[in-house]
């Protein structure tokens, strides 16, 4: 469990996934990847492999949100583990295509 400050970076302990926090509900959140708690980059892993229940993988550049959109994270490095919070997998945020303006 850790406080997820917007802009903070987290790494999976069981795969190559790394994320950055875009929006956070505040307070302690148990951010997981592949079923294991995520840690600051360079502080553990990757060792082992993701849980079978959390092995769909993460996709580079995609944003993931919890049920009520209070938490939003951006995948900055992809891996084999799925992202979740407290045992529940996060959903992929729908992209709203916008025409390029610059």
């Amino acid at each position: 469990m850790a406080e997820l400050k917007p802009g903070s970076r987290w790494a999976s302990q069981v795969c190559t996934t790394e994320v950055i926090v875009v929006r956070s509900p505040g307070g302690d959140v148990d951010l997981e990847c592949g079923g294991s708690t995520m840690v600051p980059p360079g502080e553990g892993g990757p060792n082992g492999s993701p849980d079978a229940a959390a092995s769909e993988g993460s996709q580079l550049g995609k944003r993931y949100v919890d049920g009520d959109d209070a938490l939003e994270i951006l995948c900055t490095k992809p891996g084999d583990g799925s992202l979740g919070v407290g045992g529940t997998l996060l959903g992929l945020k729908e992209a709203k295509p916008l025409p390029a303006s610059d």
Partner: peptide, 9 residues
């Protein structure tokens, strides 16, 4: 950027 551009689009 995150609000207006889809990564790798």
């Amino acid at each position: 950027i995150l609000g207006s551009v889809e990564f790798g689009s």
